[in-house]
Amino acid sequence: MIIKILFTAFIGFAGGLAVGAGFVAFLTVLGIIPRLTQLTKTMKMIHWYEWAVISGAIAGIAASLRDPIFGMHPFVLIPLGLAGGVYVGMLSAALTEVLNVLPILAKRIGMDGEIVMLLMAIVFGKIFGSIFQWVYFIHH
């Protein structure tokens, strides 16, 4: 019995280690935290940002495994949704940048000057796609 428990705990720990390391590696490659510190000039606070990511991940684990209920006002969801959206938006922007899509595309079609317009096409496309999905698509 004790062997079974220890073995299960070990497998769970190993899985958590792999997923956690992968998550942090992904964040590091995309360079979102350096980008945010560069925008706000808060390089000295970078350790706090690390702990924000770690405690956020742990809070997410707790919420998804234990189903707590807080009974707060629904308006609390507005900043949460906004923060989540900004985070996913930055992830996808960083991913686009890593893949080097925009510079090559802009150069190919001779629009080096209008790259902001191309960027806006992607931004509005994402907003439109997301709103369309939540308001219409999934309910039909």
Partner: peptide, 10 residues
């Protein structure tokens, strides 16, 4: 807010 934040983040 999530959808708007998505564009804002980019």
């Amino acid at each position: 807010p999530y959808s708007i934040g998505l564009g804002l983040g980019m």
